[in-house]
Simulated assay, not measured.
Amino acid sequence: MNKSTKALLIIIISFGAYFAFDAIFFKDIRKWLFDRTNQLGISHILTYLITGIPLFSVTLLIGKRTDFFRNLGIDKSIMKGLLFALACTLPMYVGFSFIFEFNSDISINTILIGVVSAGFFEELYFRGFLFGLPFRKTKLGFLLSVIFGALYFGSLHLYQSTELDELLGIFLVTFLGGIFFAWAFAEWNFNIWIPIFLHMLMNLAWELFSVSDNALGGIYANVFRLLTIALVIVLTVLYKKRKGLKLTINKKSLSFQKS
């Protein structure tokens, strides 16, 4: 078994362990923490950290311990991620403020769970680990590295509706969102803070205004969401062109990568 295949096998097994651990123990751990802290949002974040132990352990095993933060993209510029995300999500905040009413029911727990926790851990686990490690540590190209995480990411949001047409729409939006965030992560030199802050700020815009009860949204919501996505793509391409950098995701890196 070569090094690339071994790394991929370890990544898949560890994510399976994380999935099982999360599915079985997440609610119980969060309840145990909540009973002691009386803080739902904080308990939710701490539980995500605990259930992510299998992923953190494997990240340490795959590379040198000193490379732990680099392998997940955490070592890159936080400020660059924040400023880029702020600029790109501006159309959502401006557009939503004109079209939708402010959500007066928003709470600190909503922000901690739906914005901070969702944005940080979903990007760290799905993009940093499940996409980033196979793409960077094996010979798999972009499509083969991203497909499983995007499918799983899409399926996680199916609880938001029971209507078949809405379920299909929600799955498609979140599935494509998983691919989009992975692309942004790769193109910005594997800076995980880029997709983290994009995810957080997009979710925050959704929560601050009465946009929709699920990830699908309506026509106006998606117009401004698409403007944000377009800005991310255009600004990324222009930035790399100005710096004289080639796109990381190209024809040569789509399916398999050369050694």
Rank of each mutant, 00 (worst) to 15 (best):
I108Q: 06
I108D: 04
I108T: 09
N109Y: 05
T110D: 15
T110I: 09
T110W: 12
T110E: 11
T110Q: 07
I111R: 06
I111C: 11
I111D: 10
L112C: 05
L112N: 03
L112G: 04
L112R: 03
L112Q: 07
V115W: 10
V115N: 03
V116W: 08
V116D: 08
S117I: 02
S117N: 09
A118D: 05
A118K: 06
A118E: 05
G119M: 10
G119Y: 12
F120G: 10
F120K: 10
F121L: 02
E122F: 05
E123I: 10
E123S: 14
L124S: 04
L124P: 04
F126K: 02
F126A: 09
F129I: 01
F129Y: 13
F129G: 01
F131Q: 01
G132M: 03
P134T: 03
P134W: 03
F135P: 00
F135S: 01
R136H: 04
T138Y: 04
K139D: 12
L144Q: 03
L144P: 03
S145E: 03
V146L: 01
V146D: 00
V146W: 01
V146P: 01
I147K: 00
I147N: 03
G149E: 08
G149P: 07
G149A: 14
G149S: 15
L151Q: 07
Y152L: 12
F153S: 02
F153G: 02
G154I: 07
G154F: 11
G154T: 05
S155Q: 12
L156R: 07
L156Q: 09
L158H: 12
L158Q: 13
L158Y: 12
Y159H: 15
Q160Y: 05
S161E: 14
S161Y: 14
T162L: 11
T162Q: 13
T162A: 12
T162G: 06
E163P: 11
L164D: 12
L164K: 10
D165E: 14
D165A: 13
